[in-house]
């Protein structure tokens, strides 16, 4: 199976713009949401869904499809908007975001949304489940790959490190962890709250092959991920340098925007900047 779009980086940049505009509209309409977190991950999600992930709309249950887990479940609006932009979900559904019993609740639910493998929202769950999925592929000789996107503050959860230890022990070269490294968490900078650095060294010490990429450059992300050796008996960590709130100047790199919503004037400015 291959990706059904296979877009070039320049085309993905255009898709990311549209996704960002949808995020602003959707969060404003809902009256709440994790705007900064959503904007941080957009270029990573766009690169995955429009190029990297081997998934296709008419084969959503295919056991050979690549698996993606949004471990930072609070970034779900970014995922919904990406799936809508890709035509996997109808755009009208975004109107129901956060509404009663909506198919688009504030954290992803696999029973409600295609390509959601796990109900995330509590942090530090995706990597363990990713390890289990990658292990299932090894045990059944399937060739699918498993991509897990975590936030960076999320890595303060100890369960990630249990999972990392086992991913290396089981030699899961089909497992790719992407860290949305925007250096901000809910309350403040990660390094102020509970320092993560030297993060790359930590993953290396746990047996991962570690790469760094510009998390806002689809070209760099694609080149990094497509050149990974998926047969070297090592799991991979891609530390994607990002800016929380990327694309909107007054949201960028501000902890206060973890789950703030722009007001009317701010929306106009934001949409102008995203053009």
């Amino acid at each position: 199976m291959s990706n059904q779009f296979k877009l070039q980086p320049a085309q993905i940049v255009e898709k990311a713009k549209e996704i960002r505009k949808k995020i602003i509209h959707t969060n404003v309409r809902a009256g709440q949401g994790h705007t900064g977190s959503d904007l941080s991950e957009v270029d990573i999600l766009a690169s995955l869904f429009f190029r990297i992930l081997n998934i296709q709309k008419d084969r959503i249950d295919d056991p050979d499809r690549d698996r993606f887990i949004l471990s930072k479940g609070h970034g779900v609006c970014g995922l919904y908007c990406t799936l809508v932009e890709a035509g996997y979900l109808p755009e009208e559904l975004l109107d129901t975001y956060l509404q009663f019993d909506s198919d688009m609740p504030g954290h992803p639910v696999r029973q409600k949304c295609l390509f959601v493998e796990l109900n995330t929202g509590a942090l530090g769950h995706g990597l363990s489940v990713g390890v289990g999925l990658a292990l299932s592929a090894k045990k059944t000789n399937r060739r699918f790959r498993v991509f897990v996107l975590t936030g960076d503050g999320e890595l303060q959860e100890g369960s990630n490190w249990e999972a990392a230890m086992s991913g290396a022990h089981f030699k899961l070269d089909n497992l790719v962890l992407i860290v949305d490294r925007n250096t901000l968490q809910l309350a403040d900078r990660t390094e102020t709250i509970m320092g993560l650095e030297p993060l790359a060294d930590k993953f290396r010490a746990f047996g991962f092959e570690v790469y760094r990429a510009n998390g806002h450059d689809p070209g760099d992300l694609i080149e990094t991920i497509e050149s990974l050796d998926m047969h070297n008996a090592m799991p991979k960590a891609v530390i994607a340098k990002t800016i929380k709130g990327k694309g909107v100047s007054f949201i960028e790199d501000r902890a206060a925007w973890h789950h703030r919503i722009p007001n009317e004037a701010e929306v106009l400015t934001a949409l102008e900047e995203l053009e």
Partner: peptide
């Protein structure tokens, strides 16, 4: 048989992943 070591959170997460992979 898969032994994840003394790591109960990972035990359950890995089991969930294996089930999602068809086990």
């Amino acid at each position: 048989l898969i032994n994840v070591g003394i790591a109960e959170q990972n035990l359950v997460g890995v089991a969930a992943g294996l089930s999602l992979g068809g086990f």
